[in-house]
Design a protein around this nucleic acid. Structure first.
Lengths: 125, 125
DNA sequence: CCTAGTATCTTGTGTAACAAGGTAGCTTGT
DNA sequence: ACAAGCTACCTTGTTACACAAGATACTAGG
């Protein structure tokens, strides 16, 4: 652990991490717009729905959920099952819904700007 | 051209900042693919081309340029003009071009995954 | 002189994503 | 009985980037 940690075969990782910044929160809100869900479920849904392109770990998700809760964007409900570990279900609040709309909008604007830029060739300049 | 920095109001906060993460590097590489440019020029081009959707300040840009240089993705050339402050011109290297291609690809994959997700409604579930 | 524009650079701060840990309950296999 | 492996939750420390807010330096105009 001295100087450098092994980035072994795939040193390129970081960019993908950066790209997710801010977007994961939106992604989670969107999943919740399908109906209430618990943490672990959100992870599997996100990974499944996007074929791994939006991979997220639980260590990343839970802090997001706390943020959303603290901001009043989601409500929380514990469900104790007859069997299995208790689950913490999250549902969108009204504020959550409007924040989801706002973020979706912002993301679209940003993504369109990037896409437009990346299609702009030297001659169009 | 003014660097106008008051972002008017303080409502917008962090999300937009977060969304830019990682993408700015790609945006800068792309601008350089149009031909060499100096820092200040890149700022105005990016802001102009995207109607402010990809606003970037010089305090953000210069660190990016150093990163690109350290990674061997750009070459640097000083130009001393008869009048005015000397300019530092950046041009893409071969490695820069291939990194640009890689990042463009990665961005597209990510953006498509997000877009697909955001279009997915509850019933499709 | 003072202001405003061009052009570069530095420092400090905030924070999101993540790796790597942990706890706990249930199921299956041996 | 025990171990593995899965579900399901939570915490801590690290890293890296974007940015605000500064500084420097030259030029031009009032």
């Amino acid at each position: 652990m001295g100087v450098d940690q092994d980035q072994g075969g795939e040193g390129k990782r970081s960019i993908e991490r950066e790209l997710r910044r801010g977007s994961l929160e939106l992604a989670v809100l969107h999943v919740l717009s399908w109906g209430e869900a618990y943490g672990y479920e959100i992870v599997t849904k996100l990974v499944g729905k996007t074929n791994g392109a939006l991979e997220i770990t639980d260590g990343t998700l839970y802090p997001i959920l706390y943020r959303l809760e603290a901001a009043g964007l989601v409500n929380v409900r514990w469900e104790t099952l007859k069997r299995g570990v208790p689950r913490k279900y999250y549902q969108l609040t009204k504020a959550g819904r409007s924040e989801l709309a706002r973020l979706t909008d912002e993301w679209s604007t940003f993504a369109e700007a990037m896409t437009r830029l990346l299609h702009q060739q030297a001659e169009d300049r």
